[in-house]
Design a protein around this nucleic acid. Sequence first.
RNA 1: GCCGCCAUCGUCUAGUGGCUAGGACGGCAGGCUUUCAAUCUGCCAACGGGAGUUCGAUUCUCCCUGGCGGCGCCA
Length: 508
Amino acid sequence: MDHLPLHQKDSVRVRIAPSPTGPLHIGTARVALFNYLFARQHQGTFVLRIEDTDPERSSPKWERDIIENLKWLGILWDEGPALNKDYIGPYGPYRQSERKEIYKRYIKKLFDNGFLYWCYCTKEELEAQRQEQISRGEPPRYTGHCRNLTKEEIERYKKEGRKGILRFKVPSKIIRIQDIIRGKLEFDTSLFGDIAVARDFSTPLYNLAVVIDDYEMKINYVIRGEDHLPNTPKQILLQEALGFPRPKYAHLPLILGPDRAKLSKRHGAVSIGDYRKEGYLPEALINFMALLGWNPGTNEEIFSMKDLEKRFSLERVQKSGAVFNRQRLDWMNGYYIRKMPTEQLTEKCIPYLIEDQISKIKDQKYKIKETREIIDFNYLKNIISLFQERLKRLSEIRELSDFFFKEELEYEPDLLLWKNSSYSEIQKNLKKCYKILKNLKETEWQREKIKEVLLKEAEKESDRGKIFWPLRVALTGRKASPPPFEIAEILGKEKTLKRIEEAIRLVS
RNA sequence: GCCGCCAUCGUCUAGUGGCUAGGACGGCAGGCUUUCAAUCUGCCAACGGGAGUUCGAUUCUCCCUGGCGGCGCCA
């Protein structure tokens, strides 16, 4: 850990700085996670800052989404906005829109020291220039048209109603960066042109705002996505002009879509909220995201947040981008679902059922909407337990368990047919089941007993499927489901017999 | 176009100057099983290309190719 002197171990300060222009993106969440883990590892501080300098695109609604979902994931910050109340931290507000006084000081300082100038070019003029440069094969950049305007020219522009923007006089030099993940990097700033840094004295643009805030908040490690690599030398130039120390940089590989382009909306669900709604567990998402670009160097692959806090290291972060693989996420989510206590799983599944199968009456009591039966938590738990090893996403419980909440099942009579058996044979076997089950006492109505008595009958056949398949279909109306004994037990004797009768009628 | 970054199975990845290049997801085949799932067993599957360095390169260097990112009065 040569980039981290021992005496600084307790002073690590990192941040995640999302802009509230959309819901929490999976890429942002992963960058947040890596920052969080790095901070935890070094007993450092993890800061959340809201980058809402663009009032056009920012919205409190998205800020709320970002905050709520970070909390849900368990990526908690030490300093930053609280969910429901205003909060001013030790380094000022954590929302850029509330930090104008701070920015003003520095922008004035830059201007007074001659680093900045007003540029009055219009967007159209800039665009025309850009096109021309591109057609000549030059890098599109601002070449300093307004750098040395006379007082008269400035007056004239102002009279024309031009508002102007503050640009930074970019010096020509080679910037060398030592990136923790990528090693030595070099940039030639003469290719940049003069960058726009502020709309006016109190509203900095991104590059300047970041530099000022990171300095003010004493951020010493900047861990962010690789897409920010080209911004880094620009920010360093600004730091140098302001006399700020340079933080250490670590640029993380990007999360890619199946086409290997940066993961974006067109690839499907990208917001944490979407995954949450579909029934992905935070543990699975965290584990999965951590392994996208990081690995422990061993064959282990199941990691809790606590494990990650112990094991994570920037040194083991990959350089190349990682394709987001939904199947692997599904597998991992299924793994965590199976590992979870059934009680807890039931609690998590109930909201999905409440959407259409059941309604909540009071604590622990629910009503099946279609049959109007009153059931309790335990009943639901019994149902959920049948699907625990079959679920990949919590939302699947709706579809999978549907037949428990129906008055009547709808299915094709042909579905009752096992292999090449005939209707009459199926009818005969269903009648046998009916008779056997009817003779069972209520006290004997439990899965082992049901299985025992039916198995005795099924053994007489050349193939157990001749008994079990039609019975299972009679109870579920499905070609795939848990075993009939367990379903019968939960359904109860009366409903079970009724469903068998119904099936018999179908094949008559 | 310019600048930059990256390069091991389809995907996530381990790894080494000499190994049958390892694991996981997925796929395929099989066991268990009425079905599905879970689970177990097995199989398929990779070092982008060319030079160099070297006794020997997947590994080190260079070039090429390819992929990606960036080039806003967005962040």
